[in-house]
Simulated assay, not measured.
Amino acid sequence: MADSVLIEGLVVETVVGVYDWERKVDQRLVVDLEMAWDNRVPGASDDVRDALDYAAVSERVTSCLQTLQPQLLEHGAEHLAAELRQAFGIRWLALTIRKPGAVPAAQSVGVRIERGAR
């Protein structure tokens, strides 16, 4: 199955980073998700209860990263991927977390991981 649900450009304001000054301010993270999901059932039923609730996923992403306040994007990505897969029954996901402005010469820096089996 190649179906998926996308969330792109989700902005989360949280404490992130390793330097002392970073631990005292909120910074912007931008999260992109692609999650394997069988869209045939909600496609046929037109019933929201059959679909992956992307509003609930978005809320979970925000609360997870705001609570975790990771030093490293890698840690945030691993923790978030595990939490989303467990909470929503997602068997595969690709997750990108970007930190705009972290490197002055770059638009953003970030990490991308894939977890689970398609």
Rank of each mutant, 00 (worst) to 15 (best):
W21Y: 13
E34Y: 05
L65P: 02
L80M: 04
W37L: 09
R85Q: 14
D53F: 09
Y19N: 10
S108P: 00
V11C: 10
P70V: 01
T96W: 04
R40M: 01
G110N: 06
L68F: 12
T62L: 07
V109C: 02
L95F: 05
D20A: 14
L10N: 00
V31R: 06
D20T: 12
Y54V: 05
V11R: 15
S63D: 13
D20F: 02
P42V: 10
G116V: 09
V25A: 01
D32H: 08
H75M: 09
I113P: 04
A105W: 15
V103G: 00
L93F: 10
A51L: 08
L65Q: 09
E34D: 13
P70W: 02
D32V: 02
P70R: 02
M35H: 10
A87M: 04
Q86I: 07
K24Y: 09
D32S: 14
R60T: 15
V12R: 02
A77G: 10
R91Q: 14
Q71S: 13
V57I: 09
D50M: 06
G9R: 07
K24C: 15
F88M: 06
V48D: 07
T14F: 03
W21M: 05
E22I: 06
S4V: 13
Q71M: 11
Q71D: 14
L80F: 08
Q107L: 11
D32K: 00
I97A: 03
L93D: 08
R85N: 00
F88H: 01
A51N: 10
R40A: 13
R98E: 01
G9N: 11
R115I: 10
S108I: 00
C64M: 11
V25P: 04
E78A: 11
V57N: 05
E83Q: 15
K24W: 10
R85F: 04
A51K: 09
R85W: 04
A87D: 12
V5P: 07
G76M: 06
T96M: 04
A36D: 09
Q86T: 14
I7Q: 01
A81L: 09
R112Y: 10
R91W: 12
E22K: 01
N39Y: 10
V111I: 11
G110L: 02
P104E: 15
A81N: 06
H79C: 12
D26S: 13
A102G: 11
L65E: 03
R98M: 03
G116I: 05
L95R: 04
D53P: 09
V111H: 00
V30C: 05
V15C: 07
G110M: 03
G9H: 01
L52P: 06
R28N: 00
S45Q: 03
K24D: 15
R112P: 01
A117M: 14
H75G: 12
V41E: 09
Q86V: 05
R85D: 07
L6K: 08
V16R: 01
V48S: 10
L6N: 11
R40L: 07
S45P: 08
V11K: 14
A55F: 13
E34L: 05
T67S: 14
I7H: 07
A2V: 13
R112T: 15
W92G: 00
P100K: 00
V48R: 12
K24H: 15
I90A: 01
G89H: 00
P42E: 05
E114H: 09
A105V: 15
E78S: 12
L52M: 06
A106N: 06
E59I: 05
R85Y: 03
R98V: 03
V15L: 09
D20K: 11
E13K: 12
G9M: 12
E22R: 05
R49Q: 15
